[in-house]
Design a protein around this nucleic acid. Sequence first.
DNA 1: TTAGTGTATAAGCATATGCTTATATATTCA
DNA 2: TGAATATATAAGCATATGCTTATACACTAA
Lengths: 113, 113
Amino acid sequence: MNAGINTKQAAQILKLLADPTRLTMMKLLKSHECCVCEFVEIFKMSQPAISQHLRKLRDLELVREERRGQWIFYSINQEHKDYPFVENILKQLADQGESIKELEAKGLRICCE
Amino acid sequence: MNAGINTKQAAQILKLLADPTRLTMMKLLKSHECCVCEFVEIFKMSQPAISQHLRKLRDLELVREERRGQWIFYSINQEHKDYPFVENILKQLADQGESIKELEAKGLRICCE
DNA sequence: TTAGTGTATAAGCATATGCTTATATATTCA
DNA sequence: TGAATATATAAGCATATGCTTATACACTAA
């Protein structure tokens, strides 16, 4: 009992989540697949900056990528060994649904379908 | 509903917890008060290094300090606005009880009573 | 094939982080 | 009072982080 996640692995994951951009990304990805251009729009951040954040999440396999035509969609990796740990953290965060709704309102979400 | 903790505050707290030393400290403090010398022994780390980690936790008021004679004891601040968030994370970590037991076995815990 | 779009990567840079050593402060005890 | 102990702080340094700009790669469409 008290299995629990290994402390070093936990710290490694927390390090990834400890950045506001990546934390919000993960929260968003928990309910929506997103492509890079959407994140660029949501975070008002350069495309390379977004790509580099995504790479870090990908390196630990917290997210998955899937190319669809020109676009690459990212999704949360629910099969990750420590996904329950991650999910538990994300669950406690305030909802981010508005970002997606704003995108839709601007018609920007369509670009990636 | 879905009140949730603010994302920036969450990221700030996660940043503190994202260090293996501080994360283990917090896990330990959840069940035991500890003084600095104990942490020095547990982590085999210099006293200033330990002090600096504790200062960061103190700055966000995740922990409290209380001087008792020569020693300063640290404890978790359960009154912190975001303590539930923190606790939820700590709950998922593997138990750290052995560190304390080892200390006791070496008779080193006594030094701080 | 070529141009345009979406994404990744590389290199560079400013700032942050976590240690180190040296020193200051607080307390106890002789 | 002075020495010993516990802790905090300051300064310095190596490394990590997160951006930037420039460029490469992948796909689409003309």
